[in-house]
Amino acid sequence: MLRPFTLHRPETAEEACALLARLGEDAVPYAGGTELLLLMKLGLLRPPHLVDVKRIRELNELADGGRLTIGATVTHRSLERSPLVRARCPLVASVARHVANVRVRNVGTIGGNLAFADPHSDLATLFLALDAHVELVSPGGRRELSLGDFVRGPWETARRPDELLAGVRLAPWPSRAAAYVKFGVHERPTLGIAVALGLNGGDGRAGARIQDARIAVGCVGPRPARMFTAEARLRGVSVDRVDDVVGAVGDSAAAGVDPADDLHGSADYKREMVAVFVRRALRVAAARAGGVEPATSFPYAVVA
């Protein structure tokens, strides 16, 4: 049951920002509503004004202009099925395919997902690993923030009340040398591990070395986090020798997280699972680097 609210449907970002500026805390941007309407039905949020941003054309863009631009109102489903995304950032499409369920993906948007900053967001973790930036628009202009700077904590972002999340930009990552693995019994994942390997000698060549490794861990902390120490251990390692270092890399990642006891499990268990799934994600990414899609399946886990 929703309480009455006023629905605004601006056609431009400027209009939307003006509304947000004018209405202040009384207004909330609204797109798919999969998170927002849920909180409103539970009575946890009762905004008098909703600013529907879906009519703002630029927010719905999915474009390739050097960097890939994913507009804030692009749905998970569009991302999942977009030939552009599949070609330029296949892992993004693959992760999108496993978000929640098909109904949520059909309606829920990338912008909504990121702006809510639910610590169990798959895409936030993935985007962090892919060095994505978000673009924010306000009456004062536009600014870009790295995903790490944007997501500040659970349900907390750097978006100012008069700002609108316009979208995400990321450098294409056509490499198959990447993986996202999530694990958990509950509706939302207990942990998510994103691994992206930059290789010298190009993609898919056996014997290539890891030039640039990125590991992000999500769900176990207040916000997704890069594991820089763990990443450093991978630099220069040959992809066919990844197995030699996965143990140390996993342990290093586990040492880099600070989980809390909650419904998803005890802190020590989650820490150990970070080690386990970092190892697994790395093995999958390394196999993919060698042009092999491993037939991997783990109970209660999704390998994207």
Binding site: K41, V102, R103
Partner: peptide, 26 residues
Amino acid sequence: CDTQVCGACTVLIDGMAVSACTYLAV
């Protein structure tokens, strides 16, 4: 469930499944 988990309220909008319990009629 009223939380988009169960699917009992599923309807198709332009062929696409949505949770009608969490979808504005407008």
